[in-house]
Design a protein around this nucleic acid. Structure first.
Length: 568
RNA sequence: GCGGUCGUAGCUCAAUUGGAUAGAGCAACAGGCUACGAACUUGUAGGUUGGGGGUUCGAGUCCCUCCGACCGCGCCA
């Protein structure tokens, strides 16, 4: 593509045509120069957004509103003057843009088609590296899903797993060093309760009337564990003293349950870099290190024989106990140690916590500030999930016994649908998941719509001559002029920017939304434009657009942990 | 009672962080295959963004206040 280049473009490699971002940068610079020249405004920030209505163009900027006050003219007058001046200032602007319209104070922009052609070509050139950003050396610790080692994973964890894993994958794509971790709460009193529960189930094998503890975990899975204990360790157990037996049973159950949780996570397509045992933190001396650090900083005091953290100095409601009067550390104490470690080894620490941890945010944020890392910790709450089957509310209380596990939900509606559905929603918004609806309308589920787009492209590529498909990868694209073609190309080119936004704002639900938009734009293109029956130049250009669309869909589905089928 | 999250179409949710006439899907209704996958597509209808007040060029978004839902408020984890 031969064209005179704007000044900014000199930095680009010579062999590549200008891309949409280059054009926008050129325009931004021209507008800054104009603002400086017309209104003596030097530090003007020019941001382009996708306007809500397509007839407003492909991008829009609202710089005129910011200037209107100092210029003491209406935003519309300012916008008009800016556009005129920018055009005169840099002739490249008129070549790069098909439209530059000052309307109601906004400057609406439409790029020349060649820029979108170049964007499609660059997607094909990048292949699997499409939307990938260079390694940037920022270390991120991402904790999500963590559950007590007292039972199987439930749907609440499923939501956190979907969201957390999509974030991890997106951040990795964008060049961050992401370390995913799960904390196993295996140090506190609940393990004692677990031991007593297993013991009761064990004794019930021979004495059905044996009482189940008040604070026990009633799920059937402990019966299975008791049976296994009986078969494999029955002889040993018989020789144990009570304390020893309870500890042994608690440990056995803990190991079995954690292993099950790990299998569930893997089946859900989520891999963790670290399963961090709380008890192991104790054993490694991390707990005392955390306490020592807070003491050293002078943020602790003793009262009633217990050690307190001055959380109120850092915005929390009340001071928090670290070590009880009897010498045992609290749950929060473990988090002090764990977060102290994470804050030191990562540049950005993210916790995705369950809905019962709202009151915990202030404590953790106060801790991060006390330790000298303000702003380094981000706490996200994965909101409540209410399961229903039509009118009937599905019980999710562990106490009630008949809980629906994550594995069971996946078995009922499928892995792809479950992952997509949970990732689709903003994390901090409570949601109602109707299993009956998900089943009945499985064909109407958005995930199938997106997957169908991918499969449809695969089908077209199978029907095409393989020589054509090969040639399409380097074909000239100037034949792509139809509005549906341009709209699709523009959509595909959004992915890098969108992925970056998702990583920065921790908003993975935008990925699912975008996937739907890509599929929709593709289906529309497919409906309005024939491909294989066209003459060679158009055919190859459209096949190239298919290839780029398939690439984008595969990438985005990959980020969501959802399969991209060749056929369905 | 105090603190937090939230309230958007009949349903499930968006709205690029203060921008234009609040958008998608499902459900409803009316159309489109002698064409590469109709699991698609075009259109219609659906709203006082829980109520009220304020801030400004401009508010679903920020502030105040009511109403409602959920979650916290242990030397439990």
């Amino acid at each position: 593509m031969r064209r005179r280049r704007g000044e900014e473009a000199k930095m680009e490699p010579a062999e590549h045509a200008l891309l949409p971002d280059d054009a926008l940068r050129t325009l931004a610079q021209a507008l800054r120069d104009s603002a400086d020249s017309l209104y003596s405004q030097r530090e003007l920030e020019v941001v382009f957004e996708g306007p809500r209505r397509p007839e407003f163009g492909e991008f829009a900027t609202n710089v005129a509103f910011a200037l209107a006050r100092v210029a003491r003219r209406s935003p519309q007058d300012v916008a008009k003057a800016l556009v005129e001046d920018a055009r005169a200032r840099n002739p490249a602007v008129d070549e790069l843009f098909a439209a530059l319209d000052p309307i109601a104070g906004f400057i609406n922009v439409r790029l020349a088609p060649q820029l979108w052609h170049a964007a499609v070509a660059s997607i094909l050139r990048d292949g699997e590296a499409f939307a990938r950003a260079a390694h940037r050396g920022q270390r991120i610790s991402l904790e999500f899903g963590s559950a007590n080692p007292t039972g199987p994973l439930l749907v609440v964890q499923g939501r956190a797993l979907s969201v957390g894993d999509a974030l991890a994958r997106t951040m990795r794509l964008r060049g961050y060093d992401v370390f995913t971790e799960w904390i196993i709460n295996d140090a506190g009193g609940q393990l004692d309760a677990l031991g007593r529960s297993v013991d009761a189930r064990y004794r019930q094998l021979s004495d059905a009337a044996y009482p189940f503890p008040e604070d026990g975990y009633p799920g059937d899975y402990l019966i299975d564990i008791a049976n296994e204990l009986n078969e494999r360790e029955g002889a040993r157990i018989a020789t144990m003293a009570e304390d020893e037996r309870l500890a042994f049973m608690a440990q056995f159950a803990r190991d079995r349950i954690v292993a099950d949780q790990q299998h569930s996570a893997e089946r859900f397509g989520v891999h963790y870099d670290l399963w961090q045992s709380e008890r192991e933190l104790h054993e490694r001396g991390r707990i005392s290190e955390g306490i020592a650090r807070l003491k050293e900083l002078g943020f602790t005091y003793e009262a009633d024989g217990a050690l307190f953290f001055r959380a109120t100095d850092f915005g929390d409601d009340k001071d928090r106990v670290l070590v009880r009067a009897d010498g045992r550390p609290t749950y929060f104490c473990t988090d002090v140690a764990y977060h102290y470690e994470k804050l030191r080894r990562a540049d950005r620490v993210i916790d995705i916590l369950g809905p019962d941890h709202h009151g915990y945010i202030g404590r953790l944020q106060g801790l991060a500030r006390a330790l000298g890392y303000p702003g380094r910790l981000e706490v996200l709450i994965s909101q409540q999930v209410t399961l229903v089957r039509g009118e009937e509310r599905v019980s999710m209380s562990k106490r009630a016994g008949h809980i629906l596990t994550l594995d069971e939900v996946v078995g009922e509606v499928g892995l792809d649908a479950t992952r997509f559905f949970f990732a689709m929603l903003a994390t901090d918004s409570p949601l109602t998941f109707d299993l009956k609806l998900a089943l009945e309308q499985s064909n109407e589920n958005p995930v199938y719509y997106v997957q169908y787009g991918h499969a449809r492209i695969a089908s077209v590529l199978r029907k095409a001559e393989s020589a054509d498909v090969a040639a399409a990868r380097n074909a000239p694209l100037s034949a792509l002029q139809h509005p549906a073609e341009i709209a699709l190309a523009r959509r595909l080119a959004e992915l890098p920017r969108l992925a970056q936004h998702v990583a920065e704002q921790l908003a993975p639900h935008l990925l699912a939304r975008y996937a739907r938009d890509v599929a929709s734009d593709f289906h529309q293109f497919y409906t309005e434009c024939r491909i294989l029956a066209e003459e060679r130049e158009v055919r190859l250009a459209r096949l190239a657009l298919c290839l780029a669309s398939q690439r984008a869909l595969a990438t985005i589905l990959g980020l969501l942990g959802v399969s991209a089928p060749e056929s369905m």
